[in-house]
Design a protein around this nucleic acid. Structure first.
Lengths: 345, 345
DNA sequence: TTGTAAGCGTTATCAT
DNA sequence: ATGATAACGCTTACAA
């Protein structure tokens, strides 16, 4: 707040008491008389006293704020996660300070410095596409900063993490296509650096194998920036169509990739699922609008945000460092377009 | 940060100087010798000194953080705005603390208290649907808290504001439908309390009038919670179809309303634009996917976030209170589905 | 040019 | 039960 906010001193002056007495009364200390306590509380109310969190932070050496690093805020999946993070933080009286990496390792390091300089009590992070080492996180973590990974994790750091069951999500998606008669299923996926990519690709491959379908490398296209730049997706899709053997279905492994694929197919004049089928990870609410043509894997993003924040605050507020780190796995949901979806013969 | 971070004291001790000398050296004060300055800077570097922003905040009585209140984070339009806000804040070394009103007046008041208690230096707010007075903002504003409205404004407070040209956006959308031969154009819109609703409805009506089409009240459906609850939109659309005179086109005045309409029409088995046309405000990237069937009004959300933050920081950092408040108006963009869109005869 | 001391708002440790 | 004082990290008159 601005201008002369009421402080504990003002109350002390008004009541002719010392600041320590006021402090005790407000903190409901046992060593205080009921009488003065009531007096102080009334006065505080009257003067509209609000404790100054900054002074408190300085004293307690904690800021009651947590940092969040995501690649992009303006992304349905991540904004839903942030919604979840914010809801838990708000409930527990914490601030959330958000920083974006824009999928850049360099920027992620800057974000980290910024958040550290803002004295966050803990960090929630979903690493950038370019990130493949933990050096920048390790030093902070070693100095005692609690960290929780969500969605995209990194090996080598002893922390909690919250992810979705990527293997199963991808398996379900691929299986869905197979069950509908598709046999040449391509995958448009993220950078190989990302944990989620490998987990999802593993699920995709396993589904093919379990159904006696071949795994073809030419059918697997990586988009390094995960669809953040549209041209990348367009190129990947185009590559699929310039091969001798063309896919009859595409599995896209993220929100941006799914919409990027749709956009590309749309531009090429291909209709779904008549010309080509598509199943993808998507948390865009409009996804449901493309029913019955589109089946999507929805990730429990809000829940992921809540779970990660809960784990982080638990760790922040526990006195001793946590010994047993938890890897919480949430279940994705297959939202099936419609039974009227035409069966490929 | 945690554990023993380096302070100015540590440097002082290490160099056998006083803390004030260190402070001066770091702040590059003029009253200091080049020699000691260099010495201090080197030592600071070596000890990996980082100034403690909390101590600074306490001293300077400013937190270098700004509060943002929006109805929902997990909404494309608003997450794009937040992206813009965050970009400017980051550039200028500010934190952004985000709070959600969930379209509730009560919650908005709680958010305000929370942000005030966190000592934000300024506030960016897009008021909730339920908000129709300025009492809660007025007291803070009077006490010197800079406030900037964006998107949804409120009368009676002498502040900057950034909005889009809602009248023109709506006019263009409606005109587009008229030009394509539609004559019975309904409007699905937000609460009458919101500034944006009236501005958009005015544009819609003017376009009808300018083209000698009647304005029918039965064709204007308000959704109080602006599509946050889907059933509301569904009901509104259904009402349009139970009238004797049915619309041949719908103009939806927000992101959520547009997707809600689409979903409802989809559920009713109506295809766009063959059965009914739809033009709406939408910042969802997938909107482009529904081309050629869908034409949308895209708002410059990112730019709005940047502009609002810029105005706020300007005000925060200017010593004297600003006298002339600015109302910045940004232009929305009509993204036309396609020329192949079938003309209604 | 450098050091001393007070102060930002709060709480904890001592006294009284 | 209450008051005085120091401390959290930093800046800034005011002294030296």
């Amino acid at each position: 707040m601005k201008f002369e906010a009421t402080t504990i001193k003002d109350i002390a002056k008004a009541l002719g008491l010392s600041t320590s007495t006021i402090s005790r009364a407000l903190r409901d200390s046992y060593e205080i008389s009921e009488e003065t306590k009531k007096l102080v509380l009334e006065c505080a109310e009257k003067l509209n006293y609000r404790p100054n969190p900054i002074a408190l932070s300085l004293k307690e050496r904690r800021s009651r704020s947590i940092g969040v690093i995501v690649c992009e805020i303006a992304n349905n999946f991540f904004s839903q996660i942030i919604n979840g993070i914010e809801s838990v933080a708000y409930e527990r009286g914490y601030n959330v300070i958000i920083a974006q990496s824009h999928e850049s390792y360099e920027r992620e390091i800057m974000d980290l410095q910024f958040l550290a300089s803002r004295s966050v009590d803990g960090l929630l992070i979903s690493v950038s596409t370019e990130t493949n080492d933990i050096n920048h996180l390790k030093s902070l973590h070693d100095r005692g900063l609690p960290i929780v990974f969500f969605d995209r994790t990194l090996e080598g750091l002893n922390t909690h993490s919250v992810i979705v069951d990527n293997f199963n999500g991808a398996y379900l998606a691929t299986e869905h296509l197979i069950k509908n008669g598709y046999k040449n299923i391509a995958a448009i996926t993220n950078s190989e650096f990302l944990s989620i990519t490998n987990e999802r690709l593993a699920g995709y491959k396993q589904a093919l194998i379990d159904n006696n379908l071949p795994v073809k490398n030419s059918f697997i296209q990586h988009c390094f920036y995960g669809g953040m730049v549209f041209s990348e997706v367009e190129e990947a899709v185009n590559k699929l169509f310039t091969q001798k053997q063309k896919p009859d279905a595409i599995f896209a492994t993220s929100d941006k990739l799914s919409s990027g694929c749709l956009k590309t197919l749309n531009r090429r004049g291909l209709s779904i699922p008549n010309d080509i089928a598509l199943v993808g990870f998507s948390n865009t609410d409009i996804a449901e609008l493309l029913k019955p043509s589109l089946t999507v894997i929805r990730q429990p993003a809000y829940e992921m945000g809540r779970a990660a924040t809960d784990l982080l605050l638990q760790q922040i507020e526990s006195k001793r460092p946590v010994k047993d780190f938890e890897k919480r796995v949430l279940l994705p949901e297959l939202i099936i377009g419609d039974s009227s979806s035409p069966l490929k013969k």
